[in-house]
Amino acid sequence: MLKTNYDFRYNDQNNPLMAIRSIGWESTASETYRWDGMARDDKFVLFQYTLAGEGHLIYHGRHYTVPKHQGFFLRIPDSHCYYYNSASKTPWEYIFLVASGTHVFPLWHDLMAKAGPVVSFKPQARPISMLWDMMQTAGDNGLRDKYEISLSLYDWILSCLRLMDGMPDAGKPLPESIQRALQLMETQYHRLLTLDEIAAAAGVNKHHCCRLFAKHIGATPIHQLTKIRIAEACRLLRQTDETVVAIATSTGFDNSSYFGKVFRKLVGASPQQFREQDGNLTSDNQLFVN
């Protein structure tokens, strides 16, 4: 899938249906990227979800950092500003959805009432996978009928509401302790990290760390670390010519045979099979390891 945007135009500018106005995948590393919710002369709603790096949001005077796997719901116009800060040192990469229509605004109000402006969604969560699917369909010229577009948007909003109703913590940012532990994993996965090190990064003992991960991530800390390592291994298999042994070492596995067993269990193929079978995919495709 290409990193691009898809814009939609409608003959009826007062379309009462639920209308997607744009959807896309972008990144920025410029401090000129700054949007003031009171300085825009149009009326619409926005969802933006961080894939890498981090963004910043000031909402009704309160500051939020929006790191990887978090996003925000906003109404425009409203009292907010979201922007990129170069102190982050890495580009802010995100996917987004812009929508409008008479029936969109009350449902968006319900979403924000349940979750607040900032939410935490796992990358494999239904709302996120649906966004990727909608972008793929748009890229294939499959979103051309205003009724189909309206139905897709309605289904997407319902998927968000369903997730928030079924998982009380789904719409809330991850606790800072979990964020610190995940940051350690995502930057130091190549080392032989221990549960004690992960718990120390979280600022809790290892037993409480396991309970927090079970509640908020749905996996043990070590299993989450393994998923991060395997996801990185998949990227290296797709984008480089490194040997399987070298990739195993660079992703924190000290035994290539064990790496192969873990890879097959999570991905459903050996590393070499994955490399051979996945050759038709572009480097921009995302793989989410469950």
Rank of each mutant, 00 (worst) to 15 (best):
F105I: 06
W132L: 03
T137D: 11
A125D: 12
V66P: 10
Y94M: 10
D78M: 12
G71Y: 00
P67A: 03
Y64I: 08
R75G: 05
H109V: 09
W108M: 15
G101A: 02
M112W: 02
A125T: 02
P117I: 05
A115Y: 00
K122I: 00
S88M: 06
Y84L: 05
T137Q: 13
Y83G: 05
T65N: 11
L143E: 10
L111W: 06
H69Y: 14
L107P: 01
V66D: 11
S86N: 11
G139H: 10
A125S: 12
M134V: 04
L111N: 09
M135R: 10
Q136S: 13
P91E: 12
P106Y: 08
Y82H: 15
P67S: 04
H103F: 10
S79P: 03
H80W: 07
P67D: 04
Y83P: 05
D140S: 14
L111Y: 07
S86R: 13
P106S: 07
T102M: 09
D140V: 06
P77V: 05
P117D: 06
P106D: 07
N85V: 15
S88G: 08
Y84I: 05
M134D: 01
W108D: 11
N85T: 14
D140F: 11
V98R: 14
Y64E: 09
P106H: 08
K89D: 09
V98N: 15
F72T: 07
V118R: 00
P77L: 04
D140I: 06
F96K: 00
P117H: 07
I76V: 15
W92M: 09
K122D: 06
V118D: 00
T102Y: 05
Y84F: 15
L107M: 09
K68T: 13
A113W: 04
K122E: 05
W92S: 07
Q124I: 09
G101L: 02
A113S: 13
N141L: 13
Q70W: 00
P67M: 04
M130P: 01
K114W: 07
C81L: 15
G101R: 01
Y83V: 05
S120C: 14
T102H: 10
F73Q: 04
H63N: 12
L97D: 04
L131T: 04
K68S: 07
F121S: 05
D140H: 13
Q136E: 14
L131S: 01
Q124P: 02
M130H: 08
P127L: 01
V104W: 02
K89Y: 08
F72V: 06
S79L: 13
Q70F: 02
R126M: 13
D110Y: 09
D78W: 12
A99R: 01
